[in-house]
Design a binder for these strands. Structure first.
Lengths: 188, 188
DNA sequence: CGATTGTAGCTAATGGCATTAGCTTTGTCA
DNA sequence: TGACAAAGCTAATGCCATTAGCTACAATCG
């Protein structure tokens, strides 16, 4: 039979697509091997473990998300940066739900690489806040609020936690509006 | 050997304690059986499946969380209701991380019972918002913002997503302050 | 008080998963 | 063409959930 010609890259690529289609929790060595038409243990010739793949998916997702936010922050004029970044964040989670889920499961405190990638996600947010004149400790609290609001919204939405999908767009506009008003008028 | 005298209630109680100590993802029939000093299949004489236990844990958690919020909303004067509710929410998640995690995994749209329990969590929030004079569609958007911010904050905090734990209390105060200011001054 | 019977808990078995060991085949390069 | 490394395979281990079927205890009834 012909060889599958696997490689770490091909396996990761397939895993990235898989999680977005079938869900992060459905990712398994067995499922991936089946997708390649290959026996499960064959994957171990290219990749050390399932958790390695999971971490790689998380790393890739973090990288992509950071790039999206960076782009959204720099592209156009600063006045709409918050709006753009918030929407980019939500768009990414909707377009890549599996990768987004993967990001949420890797709180290994020893893993400094992932920590540094998280920094890359934070940097554009700090940049954006500076255009509102928010910096220092206040900016740190702002970043945490922003991350909490965005992550919470997206994760509740993905879990169907809002009940009927009615007006979810408006609710997100409202979220952005509240934060923008707060920052713009320098409240709190 | 003496009988363990199991029952659905005892199993659920043990599961509730277990998830808060060892983490929700560590919950398994094997672990529970071992905790009772009993063979794994014995549990099936009292309980139909692991997923039944997981759902029961989620239901219990939802009930408790709803009660906490209701209490926080009604107890004292209304002016501090948001503050009390937000802190009660976070306290619950910190005191019962396993139960809180369980709540986040049950997006079975067919499960109307859990949906109704979610309503019980929402009701005190709507009540509280009414004291700010926020109602109708705006209140719905507010509730979603509030849930997103609280859930996001708590879940990032639990995952260690904020990096150093420094000033997390202040950040939470900031979150509450921003929302309170927005509602109080009827911004947006 | 002893026989009956339901049931709690047991062991054995099945099937799915990740992972390891060790064999076989294939592609490449001298 | 022959040797060798890498790719893929099968077999095996050990974990899990779940099912089937056996055994022994405990409460009830004659």
């Amino acid at each position: 039979m012909p060889r599958a010609n696997l490689s770490p890259t091909k396996i990761l690529d397939r895993a990235l697509k898989w999680v977005d289609v079938h869900g992060y929790e459905q990712l398994s060595m067995a499922a991936l091997a089946h997708a390649f038409g290959v026996a499960t243990p064959s994957l171990y010739k290219h990749v050390p473990s399932l958790s390695w793949i999971q971490r790689a998916v998380a790393e890739h997702g973090l990288q992509e998300l950071g790039d999206m936010l960076q782009q959204a922050a720099t592209g156009r004029g600063q006045e709409k940066a918050l709006d753009h970044m918030a929407r980019a964040y939500r768009e990414y989670a909707k377009a890549h739900p599996g990768r987004y889920s993967a990001i949420q499961r890797a709180p290994d405190p020893d893993d400094t690489d992932l920590g540094q990638l998280s920094e890359r996600v934070l940097r554009p947010i700090y940049q954006m806040l500076k255009t509102y004149g928010r910096m220092g400790d206040q900016a740190t609290h702002d970043v945490r609020l922003l991350r909490a609001a965005l992550h919470g919204f997206v994760s509740l939405e993905m879990a169907g936690g809002f009940g009927m999908p009615l007006n979810i767009e408006e609710s997100f506009d409202h979220l952005i509006g509240v934060l923008d008003t707060t920052f713009r008028n320098n409240l709190r």
